[in-house]
Design a protein around this nucleic acid. Sequence first.
RNA 1: UGCCCGAUAGUGUAAUGGAAGCACAUGUGACUUUGACUCACAGGGUCCAGGUUCGAACCCUGGUCGGGCAACCA
Length: 550
Amino acid sequence: MTEETKTNFIHDIIEADLASGKRTEIVTRFPPEPNGYLHIGHAKAICLDFGTAEKYNGRCNLRFDDTNPDAEDEEYVQAIQDDIKWLGFDWGENRYWASNYFEQMHGYAVALIKKGKAYVCQLPQADFKEYRGAPTEPGKEPPGRKHSVEENLALFEQMKNGTFEDGACVLRARIDMASPNLHLRDPALYRIKRAHHHNTGDTWCIYPMYDFAHCIEDSLEGVTHSMCTLEFEVHRPLYDWILNELNIFHPQQIEFSRLNLTYTVMSKRKLLELVNENLVNGWDDPRMPTLCGMRRRGFTAAAIRNFCGILGVTKVESISEIELFESLVRDDLNETSFRAMAVIDPIKVVLENYPADLTEEFELPNHPKKEELGIRTVPFSRELWIERSDYIDVPPNNKFKGFFVGREVRLRGAYLATCTAVEKDSDGNVIQIQCDLDLDSKGGNGLDGRKVKGTIHWVSALHAVDAEIRNYDRLFTEENPLADKDADFKEFINSAALEITTAKLESGLAKSKPSDRFQFERIGYFCADLDHTEATPIFNRTLTLRAPRK
RNA sequence: UGCCCGAUAGUGUAAUGGAAGCACAUGUGACUUUGACUCACAGGGUCCAGGUUCGAACCCUGGUCGGGCAACCA
């Protein structure tokens, strides 16, 4: 499949910067906080950050933004790296940690203090709220603003040395308590937090805030274009202020809108709720929009990348339809998946004129249009399983492809068969049907070359393998589960998003390896689950085929 | 009653002062040893009101609607 490489407003900026000579090389970064799993929203940022670097022959750093030891944990680091690699991006040698810059950040904080641009504020958090004022009214100057440079230097040193309790004071930028932008009303730069850091251990008891840390990280790494989501737009003046005061390399922050998708939620907190309340089976539950969940579901990295490319990058807040993504997944899977036959709701067919002790082996193509993908061998015998829905007493219209008494149907890749009788139980349920095979029609249309309307799939009952099938569907019943502010989004969980059933599989399928993908013909795309084994086959339904039969 | 951002078919985007395109979705039809794939056709759009201009989706002014911002989170 072709990956979209269309331009966007950020690339326009980059090209202007290259043309004007403002930049000669392009450096970006993907800066996850290691406090959770990546989801498809992050994939948009990853594709933008790494994709932009690739497009302009630049570099994209993977940087773990580990400035808050309360939230972060090493356990997420590996998962994040795995997901990025799975998506198909490579940071090479360029893996960094915000915590590696703690020493330099501290030095920059001292430099700001010496310039009179930062001070230690001993106001309790609640009190500062009052000083900050409201959007419509200016704040007032905190007492700490009156400290001399020497006092601030001494106080900050004490903060660093652990003289104060957690929360006793913070280092603040001295900007403008009357600014219409609340983020410029003397924002906190450093807080005291006695927490064990996964990387720096107990070296520090003060940690930089995002606003102070992020721009410095970008600057130290020579990032030229620092892309982030829209909610940081109002932080940009602070980003620029810090860099200007420090007079160090000045990356450009550019904001774009997040990816939202219908029928799911994207917030880390809400996904965590689903996991904690056992509404899904962990972060890699195939119903989750996490990259590990989507991978387990059978979605492909190529489809995700293509999706992000086609969606484009803008500042418009939007919710994209999942249908577009599903369409791209089908495009990819249609091209790459081996075909197989599986019967999910079986009824038995007895071929009256076929020998009971005979097994034939048919060679069927793995892909109808790609000979190079080879063939597979499928056993055929007197008793078959077909879908219950492929028999009907009276056809509703002339589009029905299956059996009714007297109807001739093609058994995919095998013979033409005519239904001769049906057996039902006392409740009228079909138990099995009888058919006569046209033994001269093997693999074709019969000796007279007649056309047959329907082709259905089947599995030899003698050789069938039983498997567990996990049919996945959309996580929520509402396009936007968050739209109703008065309702808990969890009320809209789709109870049918996971339906476990069994199936009769073509025998070769048992030997699949976890994450092998197939198209079960006429049903959908499936992949072997992580827990799949030859002894206990488990397949996840990635998606149905388009326009499933009604 | 503050500041910032945004608004193009149902959805996501393109057009960067010169013919409003594309994709998905929807509908109809063709083809088919998968009701898939593929192919053809169709419907449907510039938030509103002014202004500048030979010409405005694009520039200006004023509205309307939507989103964000008052963590010692990121």
